[in-house]
Design a protein around this nucleic acid. Sequence first.
DNA 1: ACGAAACTAGGACAATTGTCCTAACTCTTT
DNA 2: AAAGAGTTAGGACAATTGTCCTAGTTTCGT
Lengths: 193, 193
Amino acid sequence: MARQGETRDRIVAAADALFYEQGVGASSFADIAAKVGLSRGNFYHHFQTKDAILDAVIDLRLSKAREMLARWLHEGETPRDRIVLFVQILITNRAKIMAFGCPVGTLSTELAKLDHVAAPRATEIFTLFLDWLDAQFQAAGVAPDRARALAHHAMMRAQGIATLAAAFKDETQLRQDVDEFTGWLDEILRSAA
Amino acid sequence: MARQGETRDRIVAAADALFYEQGVGASSFADIAAKVGLSRGNFYHHFQTKDAILDAVIDLRLSKAREMLARWLHEGETPRDRIVLFVQILITNRAKIMAFGCPVGTLSTELAKLDHVAAPRATEIFTLFLDWLDAQFQAAGVAPDRARALAHHAMMRAQGIATLAAAFKDETQLRQDVDEFTGWLDEILRSAA
DNA sequence: ACGAAACTAGGACAATTGTCCTAACTCTTT
DNA sequence: AAAGAGTTAGGACAATTGTCCTAGTTTCGT
C-alpha cells in the first residue's frame, strides 16, 4: 500500500498535468485515474468532487509558484536579473508553452468563462507573480505606483507572448518576443535610474 | 418552416455565442438546441458532427473579422487611427472581454490544448488581423520587416490585455492598458517618420 | 397541383460523465 | 496475532454526451 498521502499527491500531480494539457473540462476522473493507475471509483475516497481536485491543484500551483519565486530571489543577483528569470521561463518551458499555452493564463481564462467558484483562486496565482514583480521594480528604484503598473505590463506581455506562441508555435518568434521584453526592461530601468 | 438556410444560420450564431461564452468543450448539442429552440436530434440534418458546427463557427468568425477590418479601413482616416480602432475594440467589448476573454485568443488556446484538427483554422483569424495590422504599419511608413514585427507586437499586447482583463475584471486597468498601447503606437510612428 | 427536396420532432443508441457504495485488502498499533 | 484505520478494486447509478434513424410536415420548382 502507498505511504499515507502519497497517493493523494500523485492524484493531484496527475490532475495538475492533465488540467494544463487538456483543460479542466476535458479531463475526466477516468483520465486522471488511468494516469495514476487507480480505479475510477476509488477516487471518492480521496476527493469527493471534481471541484475538490481542482482546489488541490490550485493549492499545488500556488505553492510551486511561491517556491519558484523564492528561488529566483537568490538566483538573480539584481532585480533586473530576477525579472529576466521571470520572462525566461517562456523559453525554458517553450515546448509546453507552444503546445498548451501559459498554465496560469489558460486556467484562469477557462474558469472565468465557466464563472467557476475557483476562478478567484486561480487569479491568486497571477497576483503572486504581480506582487513579486512589483517588489523587483521597486527594488530597482522605481516609484511604488509606477512599479505596480510596470509589473502589470510585464505580466501582460508574458500572457500575450504565451497566447501567440500557443497559436503559431513559432519558436523563433517566441525568442524574439522575449528578447524584445528584455530590451524594454533595460530601457525602463535605465530611464528610472 | 424557416427560410432555407436560415435555421442553419441561427444554429451557427447560437453556437458562436456559446463557444465564446462557455468554451467549445463545455457547449453541448443540447445547449445549442435549447438556445435555438430546436429538438436535439434534429441537429443531424444540419450538422453531422460537432466538428462541423465548429467549422461553420470559424467560417462565421473569419467573415465577421474580414468585414470588421474592411469597415475600419474607411472609418479610420490615417493608419494610426485604424490601429487605434483595432485596440479600441477591447473597450467597446469590455463587458464580454472581462467575462470571457478575447474570442480569438481563447478559441485558439482551447483548440491548441486539444490538438484539435480545427486549431490551424482558428489561428487563421489571428493571421487576418496580423496581415491587416502589418499593412497599416507599412502604410504609416514603416519598413516591411519591421511592420510585421510591430503587427505581432500589437497583437501580443491585445492578447495580454484581454487575458488579464478576464482574470482581474478591472475596467480601470483595461482602459489604462489601452491608453498605454496608444502611447506606444504614437511613439513608434513618431520615430518611424 | 404535384412530386421532390428540405425540414422537423421525438426518440434510440452506446459510451461516458460525476458521484457513490460495498466488500476486500494492507498496513500499523497493540 | 488481533483489531482498527486507511486504502483499494470493482461496479452501480442516473444523467448527459455525440451520433444516428424514422416518420411525418412544410416549402418550392415546375
